[in-house]
């Protein structure tokens, strides 16, 4: 079934594969993709993961910094950068050192939950530290 997923090949863009089932919409929300052609397949059968999501983005080559943000939701994601219909770069994601704007601070008393500002988290050990309230959280504590 995995190989049978029929979606038109893209000429230039990014393919995000091996995303946890049900994560595609959250991941799409991380990027400003309102002007791009985007195809999201959800709950696709996967021999490795049981079910998975995948996303194809036409006309946008996501940077490593951008795709590393995905690691918070989808640590097993693979990224294919497509140029001239061919895979020009294939990479995995790794936890970013700094995350700006993507995460909401789980600390309800953090000022970022009441004022308009860009949240900022720094990786600290296996956790992320809010640059404002200084609290640290495991990835699973964030609402993604």
């Amino acid at each position: 079934m995995e190989d049978e997923l029929k979606v038109t090949k893209i000429d230039r863009g990014t393919v995000l594969d091996h995303l946890p089932a049900g994560s595609a919409m959250s991941i799409l929300g991380m990027f400003g993709l309102d002007k791009n052609l985007v195809v999201a397949a959800m709950n696709v059968d996967s021999s490795k993961y049981g079910k998975k999501d995948m996303i194809k983005i036409e006309g946008r080559l996501l940077s490593r910094e951008e795709t590393d943000k995905i690691s918070l939701i989808a640590p097993s994601a693979t990224i294919n950068i497509i140029k001239s219909k061919k895979v020009a770069d294939k990479r995995r994601v790794s936890p970013p050192e700094e995350v700006r704007g993507v995460l909401t601070c789980p600390n309800k008393k953090c000022v970022t939950n009441v004022e308009e500002c860009v949240t900022r988290f720094l990786k600290s050990g296996g956790k992320y530290k809010c640059c404002f309230c200084e609290s640290q959280f495991a990835v699973k504590e964030f609402s993604l």
Partner: peptide, 8 residues
């Protein structure tokens, strides 16, 4: 009362 307010 909000944590991180001084940093902001």
């Amino acid at each position: 009362s909000f944590e991180g307010s001084a940093r902001l």
